[in-house]
Write a protein that binds this DNA or RNA. Structure first.
Length: 404
DNA sequence: CATTATGATTGATT
DNA sequence: AATCAATCATAATG
């Protein structure tokens, strides 16, 4: 039933065409070699005649076959019509319905709700995160990049580095979208087709809407599995692209000077509790042109490396303490702190490895984070974040700073 | 070219 | 889920 429609559409014509085409060609072939002289006219004639008959037989058979399908379909239609018009039909139909009702328990009503395939969800998430499935071109990764670059900090490398990547990504993206669209279209087409068929059938046999629903669901499942494959291959492509181009680990880029500046300022002005809250991280990320997770990475690395040997960071600490202090004092309006050149040299008497140091860091309020962005972890109050071991140089556990 | 600096990743921990 | 600690891989530096 299902396949017959298309076949009957071009079946007969193609069959006829084939049969008709064969004739002349065979003729021509056989008469191509008319021996120059009168020679075996009989044989030649006979040969052509025989061949002609054979071909005709085949052609007839083909035609018959073709017409058979046609006829049978017509017959079927006629029978169907007759059946539909039969006076007993309604009664029989209702009986059928009843029987189905009784035996139709096989249709398990439960389990209809398919849980979303975790695999698919994963793929979807990744595509979304990668900016492939996201909103339109220019969005997603590109947006992130542009935002990063626009906000100042960003080292000038990235855009160049990313241009190639972005191009490839958008290529993948367009392919993905066209394919997806194709699938979607095919799916809906097929679905309507099936639904039409079922509707047609429902005139001669009981077909509940539930069944149609189920059918549709099955179709959708099949198509979504195809889509899953599409998504998977797209993900693979993206992964390969990533690993080739900007696997951040392979091609590490240092943050810009300004970015590290900002981060260090925050770090040293919150030295007693260098755990920026989520909001603070966002602020930092924005002003540094990096992501929040990069900020987290930075602080993680910074904390651990600062703690590991504090002496190595004394200079830096002093420097930033100075900076923030200067800023604070300047803002308060008491311009002090001369000593421009040496700056940190004043405090640079940092003994390489040894015991306590007075609090070097002068009080440093943070400048740009004047808003109240307290970190929610009040547990690690002042200076206790670097306790619990004896690093190479247990330098003065300052805690002299305030500001949070 | 060896060493250091640094951003990211990974597994454990709480 | 956030952080620590160790580690990786590359960038920067001498």
């Amino acid at each position: 039933m299902l396949q017959q429609q298309p076949i009957t559409g071009n079946g007969p014509s193609s069959g006829r065409g084939l049969a008709l085409n064969t004739h002349p060609r065979m003729h021509g072939l056989n008469s191509v070699h008319p021996p120059p002289h009168h020679r075996s006219d009989d044989a030649g004639l006979e040969g052509t005649e025989n061949g002609h008959e054979n071909r005709r037989d085949i052609g007839d058979i083909l035609q018959q076959i073709m017409t058979i399908t046609d006829q049978s379909l017509d017959e079927a239609q006629a029978k169907k019509h007759a059946l539909n018009c039969h006076r007993m039909k309604p009664a029989l139909f209702s009986v059928l319905c009843e029987i189905k009702e009784k035996t139709g328990l096989s249709m398990r009503n439960s389990q209809e709700e398919e849980p979303p395939d975790p695999q698919l969800v994963r793929l979807d998430n990744m595509l979304l995160a990668e900016g492939v499935a996201g909103p339109e071109k220019g969005g997603g990764a590109a947006a992130a990049v542009s935002a990063a670059t626009s906000s100042g900090g960003m080292s000038p490398d990235s855009s160049l580095e990313h241009s190639d990547y972005k191009q490839k990504l958008s290529q993948i993206r367009t392919i993905y979208h066209t394919e997806l669209e194709k699938y979607e279209q095919a799916c809906s087409e097929f679905t309507t087709h099936v639904m039409n068929l079922l509707r047609e059938q429902s005139r001669t046999r009981p077909v509940s809407p539930r069944e149609i629903e189920r059918m549709v669901a099955i179709i959708h499942r099949k198509f979504s599995s195809i889509q899953t494959q599409l998504k998977q291959s797209t993900c693979e492509a993206v992964m390969i692209l990533r690993s080739r181009f900007l696997d951040a680990r392979r091609k590490r880029r240092n943050f810009s000077k300004q970015a590290t500046e900002v981060l260090n300022e925050y770090f040293y002005s919150h030295l007693s509790n260098p755990y920026p809250s989520e909001e603070a991280k966002e602020e930092l990320a924005k002003s540094c042109g990096i992501t929040v997770s990069q900020v987290s990475n930075w602080f993680g690395n910074k904390r651990i490396r600062y703690k590991k040997n504090i002496s190595k960071f004394q200079e830096e600490a002093n420097l930033y303490a100075m900076k923030t202090a200067m800023g604070a004092t300047q803002r308060e309006g008491s311009p002090q702190t001369p000593n421009s050149t040496g700056s940190a040299d004043l405090f640079l008497g940092v003994p390489p490895v040894n015991g306590e140091q007075p609090g070097y860091h002068m009080g440093a309020q943070d400048l740009r984070f004047s808003e109240r962005l307290y970190s929610p972890r009040e547990s690690r109050t002042n200076g206790s974040w670097q306790d619990q071991n004896t690093p190479p140089s247990p330098t003065g556990s300052d805690a002299s700073d305030n500001s949070d």
